[in-house]
Amino acid sequence: MTTTTLAGMEIELDDEGFIVDPERWTEAMAADLARHEGIDPLTDRHWQVVRFMRCEYEAKGSGPTVRVLGKTSGVSVKELYQLFPRGPAKIAAKIAGIPKPRGCI
């Protein structure tokens, strides 16, 4: 567990860099989180995925996997990997301030 400053707030991150308390996340933190993952700037296409992750999490309590994202977010699997080369569901979840999606497929 580490503490970092995001958008001027002290935020706790777990060992993998996910925000521990999703309630504390604000959209202003996304750019900092993205930069940390090598994504700069955060484009509208990135935002579409990040906001979708956030909505899914708020509705269902967990973030979708890559397959579900590809089917329902309006961004294809191919483009998802172009936007988030280090793992779309995992990285978008991190930027959206939600826990890492769990799922084998």
Binding site: V66, Y81, R86, G87, P88, K90, I91, I105
Partner: peptide
């Protein structure tokens, strides 16, 4: 297939 897909999901 699951192993390969899971690997890509982890980057």
């Amino acid at each position: 297939l699951i192993m390969a897909n899971g690997a890509r999901a982890e980057g």
